[in-house]
Nucleic acid binder design. Structure first.
Ligand SMILES: NC(=O)c1ccc[n+]([C@@H]2O[C@H](COP(=O)([O-])OP(=O)(O)OC[C@H]3O[C@@H](n4cnc5c(N)ncnc54)[C@H](O)[C@@H]3O)[C@@H](O)[C@H]2O)c1
Ligand SMILES: NC(=O)c1ccc[n+]([C@@H]2O[C@H](COP(=O)([O-])OP(=O)(O)OC[C@H]3O[C@@H](n4cnc5c(N)ncnc54)[C@H](O)[C@@H]3O)[C@@H](O)[C@H]2O)c1
Lengths: 214, 214
DNA sequence: CTCGTTTTGTGAAATAATTTTCAATAAAAA
DNA sequence: TTTTTATTGAAAATTATTTCACAAAACGAG
């Protein structure tokens, strides 16, 4: 499936570029230089050109990049033209915030099902998303062909819930729990560890006096 | 301040190690090998040994690492022995979830003040944290000597709010908005871009069939 | 106290990511 | 048309990070 093999660091920046290109498009700008982009997304301009060049020559020398061309290209690359349904497991504190937010705006992602163990939540609808009991996890994931889940359950049950989700065919997990869950090699886990982010920030502030983004 | 200059990649892993060491401690385990740690935190054992070695010889050959020694050491390194107060700006959807969570458990971080522009929130207390009106932002940050803020306001006002916070003496920002805010070089921004994380996950699933953590 | 075993710590090699540099070229100005 | 300016694309240099692989140290069994 990977026609083009690009560095991970580049892949992580693509959505950032994509988002800013949309802003430019909305502002009816039709060209942009790597320098200009650089200031907006806070990535070195050389890095941007390098990143773009993995996909071939997208720009014109002495001119810059055509916003619409880039946009169309990234839309395809990032699968922005098809909607991806994801499920959320654990409708608590954080789960609710995410449900409510639901990535709506110009995003291609939508939480289309949620799950929780609390009986009073089962079979209700929160922010337009149906909440199912955990007993239906596997069935619903399979029926709805959901391949990605957002994990916002307590750490103590994270591994069990993960195992269930994987059994239901999930291949991508956005993990908000501090636990580094174990998964088969074909499953990808993206950890979002908020406590960790804060502690890292504090560490950097205490130990470095200079600064660079990230 | 930076007695030891360690790689950024290492610094980002320290809180992860620290957390697992606490778990070991609670389970009354008093030794751990890099291999064992490796499985738990999903970091290559050679990387772990290398990471630890930046701080000197913390382990014993043929034995492993003493959990309590490591724990004490990391506690100091990570400033876990003193409480860090942070402020949260934007008590909405996500802000509320974070307030409510408030990093309580064995963390050294606490949200001690929150700010929002909504008049009905001003001067109330949410989850034990006082909420101030934005007009008091600078004064409170200065009075309470808060150097770090969590930014959960709408993207459209993120830059303005950031400028205010920086004017109030803030040097670290945990930024949940999709905007890459501009700050003076002495201020560090840690971006947590949830939409981005999801899109990156989707990208990886679409374009790579193999898997590695992160 | 000796010996086999475990496991660290670390040079060196490999890999990954960023930054620098600059020739090539397009667009704009003269 | 010619010159100037802007800007890419790509190679090279640099910097950062991970991994390998093994000697040396320390453990623990006997
Ligand atoms: N809230 C935050 O700001 C925050 C910040 C950092 C990390 N986290 C992490 O995110 C996770 C969720 O945090 P939270 O504050 O939303 O917790 P929470 O307790 O508010 O929510 C957890 C939800 O999961 C549900 N649940 C429990 N067991 C379950 C199971 N076996 N199957 C399905 N659902 C189950 C609970 O009913 C609850 O609704 C935790 O792991 C936490 O460490 C949260
Ligand atoms: N909620 C999520 O799950 C989620 C996910 C990804 C990203 N985000 C980002 O996090 C940010 C907050 O999201 P949210 O869903 O909590 O939004 P929200 O609208 O629920 O909350 C924003 C809060 O900020 C306050 N606010 C507005 N202008 C302000 C100002 N000038 N000064 C101080 N406070 C102000 C509002 O009164 C509100 O309480 C947004 O930038 C959003 O893109 C949120």
């Amino acid at each position: 499936m990977a026609e083009i093999k690009i560095p991970k660091a580049t892949a992580k920046r693509l959505p950032i570029y994509y988002r800013y290109l949309n802003i430019l498009h909305d502002a009816e700008k039709n060209r942009v230089s790597s320098t200009e982009l650089s200031e907006a997304v806070k990535v070195d301009s050389a890095t941007i050109r390098r990143d773009f060049s993995y996909f071939g020559a997208l720009g014109k020398r002495g001119y810059g990049y055509d916003v619409d061309t880039l946009l169309k290209f990234f839309k395809k690359i990032l699968n922005q033209d098809k909607l991806t349904n994801v499920a959320l497991i654990g409708v608590g504190n954080l789960g609710n915030a995410l449900l409510n937010f639901n990535f709506h705006q110009n995003s291609n992602v939508r939480i289309s099902a949620a799950f929780d163990i609390r009986p009073d939540l089962a079979n209700t609808v929160q922010s337009g998303v149906p909440i199912y009991p955990m007993s239906e996890l596997r069935k619903q994931l399979e029926d709805q062909q959901i391949k990605i889940v957002i994990l916002t359950v307590p750490e103590s049950v994270a591994q069990n819930v993960t195992d269930d989700a994987v059994a239901g065919g999930v291949v991508g997990i956005l993990n908000f729990t501090p636990l580094r869950v174990s998964v088969p090699t074909n499953v990808r886990v993206q950890n979002v560890d908020l406590t960790n982010e804060l502690q890292t920030l504090i560490y950097f502030l205490d130990h470095y006096n200079d600064n660079e983004e990230n």
